[in-house]
Design a protein around this nucleic acid. Structure first.
Lengths: 149, 149
DNA sequence: TATTGTTATACTCTATAACTATA
DNA sequence: TATAGTTATAGAGTATAACAATA
């Protein structure tokens, strides 16, 4: 117990920051490797997943959530709509807004894509101990909150 | 204690995978926001950091570590050498190899860049409780190992 | 005036394919 | 033949700036 407390006290924030930055960067790029051949890019896939899981969204909603500028997101959804995986609809309540939603083809792609892209990582998680898995879950929440701050 | 065990048992690997994937993607992009104006890109900055902290590296060493192809890494270091932040040297023991190392200007940029880019995240980490910080440290290690597998 | 979204442009990052040079 | 590195090319992702339309 005392040893653990000492370990925690030894955690240098600067080193911790460097560790998690490095881990996040490597894992982000590692995820990119696990993708299908005819696939969309990784951000477009994530946006499609949001549309499928959370339902229709405005452009601003999508860009805020993914932490990119509206201009960037506009181009991502442009690829999705051009490919027929998403569609634009006017918002009847606010003429400035556009509602983006997944098409049937988009939902199909999402399901296939998810199976493919997540299989590798899910297999890694299964190999963890219960406490480690709980730690990963807790830290996922922590990091999400930090990312949104 | 039993409640905690139940919570852990409830952890669905698929949901856990989706959570950490989402957190990693958002945090990766959040990191990109915290950068200087005249800055290099984020990958080039990381490579420069590796050269400064770990010492000279071959191209293959760098590309393996960052999980990109040698061709991709070649272009990243090209920008670094063109800008005068890194240099190429022949390996006297193997004529095929090139040893990349940071220049003085590179080390200077690294220090300024690190202060700038890490400040925001370090501040977030300081706000965490000790157990949370320990969990983040543990999970950084777990995720790094997964990324390298 | 403020908000929502788009387009134009440019840069970073990445990959595949084809290549050179060395082991 | 195999390995280390490069270049050419193409596409994804991002940002800033300038813009149109609506609130």
């Amino acid at each position: 117990m005392r040893a653990q407390a000492n370990d925690q006290a030894l955690v240098e924030v600067k080193e911790l920051g460097a560790s998690i930055r490095s881990a996040v960067a490597k894992l982000y790029r590692r995820f990119r490797i696990e993708r299908g051949d005819g696939d969309l890019g990784d951000v477009a896939s994530e946006v499609l997943a949001v549309l499928c899981k959370t339902g229709p969204q405005t452009l601003k909603g999508l860009s805020d959530f993914q932490r990119v500028t509206p201009a960037s997101m506009s181009q991502v959804v442009n690829r999705l709509t051009s490919a027929g995986y998403a569609r634009r609809d006017a918002d009847p309540e606010d003429g400035r807004r556009v509602i983006f939603s997944a098409t049937d083809a988009g939902r199909e792609l999402f399901l296939a894509d998810r199976a493919l892209r997540h299989a590798w990582f899910d297999a890694q998680l299964v190999g963890l101990s219960e406490p480690d898995r709980a730690a990963v879950l807790r830290v996922a929440t922590i990091l999400s909150e930090i990312a949104e701050s």
